[in-house]
Design a protein around this nucleic acid. Structure first.
Lengths: 251, 251
DNA sequence: GATTGTAAGATTGTCAACAATCTTCTTGAC
DNA sequence: GTCAAGAAGATTGTTGACAATCTTACAATC
């Protein structure tokens, strides 16, 4: 058996998803990128942390070539920043950058939801969406289940993005969502914000049912903008009192 | 002297921009990507064409490593599509994909122009913009100078994007503009369309002067949407009568 | 004559080693 | 005690070679 196939299988075995026939269709760099992506999004790798090629190559039992390609993929997704002769750092977004990304998401989520509202074959999405929004309504009343609320919002967003009739938009939105995953939950930390949020989602569902694209767009936009403001307020709170000496950010 | 520095200089010499001290700050993959980008955007490489690593490595007198990284960069920019075990193909967009990208640009150009309109320090941009819009007004009257008109529109767009206060948005817009460069001119091929276009630009300039963000956004959006519809009409015209047997598209 | 199987060539994927550069630790002077 | 200079180590950038896979051309068969 070849070295590359052995490596791929080893990696799969380590990752716990050893469905060989299916998973082998993903290239080695793609697999490595996926696993690193998890770690970054979940916070296992801290923002600003340096990622060393050799250590990863050793861990995954591959050479540095595929690791380098994986890091390029993550750079494309905005999860790491590659500096010449310094290597890859886990992206550490400034407040200004978080705001920028939320602004872009506000526009593109608006487009997404408008396209879905105007899509003739949106019935399936609506059916898939309704139970989640109902769940959201219940969770919004319960002060203690903030985490579950955030999780459900994430699911709804995911369902909508996947239902988006524009492949290009889907790709961009996925990338932006991953980059701001850590910050989105900041914006839903208070029961008040969750009540405001659930209201948006209920209205969106109605607009989608009616096929009212303009309204769906407006709601999506307001929703993300509110989320942005809440997240930035939370970030300000966190940063100000401690006056934390932050590590040098990834430019 | 090291092999890598030698390679970089050789590449620079061949490219004709041998300002060593400045250009050497760009990594080898970046330089290669930049040169390939030119060729793709200019049409020297045809859509759907396969790009072979070894040939490029030989041409640029480097090994395949940097070439592979350059192709990853181009993939991020959407200029090539990399298929596993098949290598890189010059992106060949379907009409649906062109439409998708224009829709995204409509939203994000709207955001860009709104941000500029609401930016306190927009005076410089306005000053830089005015002569170009004046030039545009003159060119719109001249039926024969379609190419110059397109060129000037491109310049105006570039100035606006560079003036955008959001770095993240700047990056995305640059990438999208490059991907649709070939199609944008299709949408400005007729004198009528140019008259419609110049009207948009004049209105935008006024909205920017007044600091009217909402209006600037609306105008930008309409402008790109009009451009989209014209480009798609033109693409339909080109594709229908000949019934061209198109090469298999890069997915 | 068209179609399928096969073999040779071409091309991508991966690896290990070397060169260049950056970091860090030590050493020395003030 | 602090700071600067230098050396050792670590890390990235690049290369050439090998392995796996894909493409193409040719031949055999229906």
């Amino acid at each position: 058996m070849s070295a590359s196939v052995k490596s791929a299988q080893r990696l799969l075995a380590a990752s716990g998803l050893a469905r060989a026939s299916l998973a082998l269709t993903l290239s080695l760099p793609d697999q490595i990128a996926a696993r690193l992506s998890e770690r970054i999004v979940s916070g296992a790798y801290a923002p600003g942390q340096r990622i060393m090629e050799q250590a990863l190559a050793a861990e995954f039992a591959v050479s540095r070539g595929p690791v380098r390609e994986a890091l390029r993929i993550l750079e494309r997704d905005g999860l790491v920043t590659i500096l010449p002769r310094r290597g890859a750092l886990v992206s550490d977004l400034s407040i200004a950058e978080v705001k920028e990304i939320f602004d872009i998401r506000a526009m593109l989520n608006g487009l997404r939801d408008r396209l879905i509202a105007e899509d003739a074959s949106r019935k399936n999405v609506l059916a898939a969406l309704e139970p989640h929004v109902a769940q959201l309504t219940r969770l919004a009343r319960d002060t203690k289940r903030g985490h579950d609320y955030v999780e459900t919002v994430w699911t709804i967003n995911h369902v909508l993005t996947q239902a988006c009739p524009s492949a290009r938009l889907k790709t961009i939105l996925d990338s932006l969502a991953r980059q701001t995953l850590r910050y989105s939950q900041l914006g839903l930390a208070t029961p008040e914000r969750r009540r405001q949020s659930v209201h948006h989602w209920q209205n969106l569902l109605e607009a989608l049912r009616k096929g009212d694209g303009a309204k769906a767009e407006r709601i999506a936009r307001d929703r993300v903008t509110d989320s942005r403001d809440a997240a930035i307020r939370a970030l300000d709170e966190v940063n100000r009192p401690a006056a934390t000496p932050r590590k040098p950010r990834a430019a």
